[in-house]
Design a protein around this nucleic acid. Structure first.
Ligand SMILES: NC(=O)c1ccc[n+]([C@@H]2O[C@H](COP(=O)([O-])OP(=O)(O)OC[C@H]3O[C@@H](n4cnc5c(N)ncnc54)[C@H](O)[C@@H]3O)[C@@H](O)[C@H]2O)c1
Ligand SMILES: NC(=O)c1ccc[n+]([C@@H]2O[C@H](COP(=O)([O-])OP(=O)(O)OC[C@H]3O[C@@H](n4cnc5c(N)ncnc54)[C@H](O)[C@@H]3O)[C@@H](O)[C@H]2O)c1
Lengths: 216, 216
DNA sequence: CAGCGATTGTGACTGTGGTTACAATCCTCG
DNA sequence: CGAGGATTGTAACCACAGTCACAATCGCTG
């Protein structure tokens, strides 16, 4: 949970730095991210003491520390499997590289996709996957194949030694515990959002709006 | 947290149903979703008693109940703002409609995008946004504009009465408490994933691997 | 250099989410 | 129709993430 927030902090600090800020307080960060300063201090203190009382955190220093904690002080090679509509948007997304994630190879099972040049990369056939993972030291894969293919593709990736997967397919794949899988699924997200979209903003869940509990 | 899992249950039950299953136990669901049966029972019991001891849950019944809880027993009209590379992939994604999310209008500020036909929708100029939201009863918006524009666009959407936003832009926008915002950001996701990608799988965080706590 | 305002780091507390264990209940089958 | 196996629902328990409050510390200023 903490770890999921650190990238958010990273982004906020980065933004404030670009605005010329040198020193940043937990208040500043809290305001930027819409959370409480205490939360931020607690999170950071979990990894070390980076601030100065009465002053705040030195932006550059904190950036570096967070990058180090998250292992973002290096480059990560990423491979993409499934270069359909979504895959194409992902490849040509310029947001990965500046953060140290380089998509170094893209693969598709469809021969009509193979050979295409997308975002500076030539789409390769699946038969080349193994070599690429090995030679290019890839440890992260982005999966953007149809749901029916996802489990099989992911299984292959795991066999090749991939250690983390960003999965766009609407499935919950089975992987060894050693492999981290994170899913991105807009439908699931929308499906939970609607829960809160009640006319009155009322809640459900067993009528717990009765604050006086009637003892049996 | 519970609410975020329900869509997962929904999907799993739906899958099992398609495989012909009529009755589903918490075990089955747990196996499918890679969680514990107890977790699932607890979650469900929070909203009511849907199962039968010794048997399990009736798939159809449970599906309906979950849909009702999440307010998915209706159609939701959605609008998309920002029809760039990502926006185009989203519009033409066939996964929304079957779950009751209909993208009924798409908007872009760039006149070169306006008028284009994408996935059965004609891209409209921003000036038409207000009318569409009003006339088509849109309460959810998907935002896929550049980061620099996101806050402004979202502010406008909120003013028009949008109650939920699925935000793809890498910013944490400020919105009133009444508006739900969920972000989808693959970079943030990758940035937290790398934390766990240590060679040995070791953890960091103040060396808490010492299980014997030395009392002060 | 003392006093002051600001801000951190953290101990203590709180609440909530998750796990465990089991009584209650149900279906089936002989 | 009774026994047995299966499975739920939940009470009791546990753990931990988040909140609160404050002493400790810092830089600045006069
Ligand atoms: N388009 C979106 O906005 C969107 C959003 C969320 C999730 N998704 C999911 O992402 C995935 C891809 O979506 P899309 O719209 O790009 O679909 P798509 O059909 O356009 O692309 C899928 C690509 O995967 C390739 N493929 C199929 N089987 C393969 C295999 N075994 N190995 C390698 N490549 C294979 C296909 O040739 C195709 O190019 C789907 O699972 C979809 O549900 C898409
Ligand atoms: N492409 C991806 O895979 C991807 C992944 C994650 C996040 N994102 C984010 O999604 C957003 C869009 O990404 P993209 O790759 O589609 O970029 P893009 O530049 O291809 O598309 C952005 C679109 O938004 C339009 N736009 C700009 N300002 C606008 C405004 N004020 N109102 C309405 N429309 C406006 C532009 O005309 C353009 O068509 C960005 O914030 C990006 O960071 C993209």
């Amino acid at each position: 949970m903490v770890v999921e927030r650190l990238p958010l902090y990273l982004r906020a600090i980065s933004n404030l730095t670009k605005q010329g800020r040198e020193v940043i307080s937990s208040q500043d960060l809290g305001a930027e991210l819409h959370t409480t300063p205490a939360q931020i201090r607690k999170d950071l203190s979990y990894f070390g003491r980076f601030g100065k009382q009465g002053r705040g955190y030195h932006a550059g220093r904190l950036l570096e520390e967070l990058r180090h904690i998250l292992q973002l002080d290096r480059t990560w090679n990423v491979t993409l499997v499934g270069v359909g509509r979504l895959g194409k948007a992902i490849i040509s997304y310029p947001g990965f590289a500046p953060q140290g994630f380089r998509i170094v190879a893209a693969f598709d099972a469809d021969s009509r996709q193979v050979g295409q040049l997308v975002g500076g990369l030539t789409v390769q056939p699946m038969s080349e996957l193994e070599r690429a993972v090995r030679e290019k030291d890839v440890s992260i894969a982005i999966v953007a194949v149809p749901a029916t293919q996802a489990q099989a593709v992911i299984q292959d990736l795991v066999k090749l030694g991939i250690r983390a997967i960003l999965n766009y397919a609407p499935v919950t794949p089975r992987v060894p515990d050693s492999v981290r899988v994170k899913a991105i699924d807009p439908v699931l997200t929308l499906q939970s959002i609607t829960y809160y979209l009640r006319p009155d903003g009322a809640s459900l869940a067993g009528e717990e709006e009765q604050d006086e509990r009637t003892p049996v």
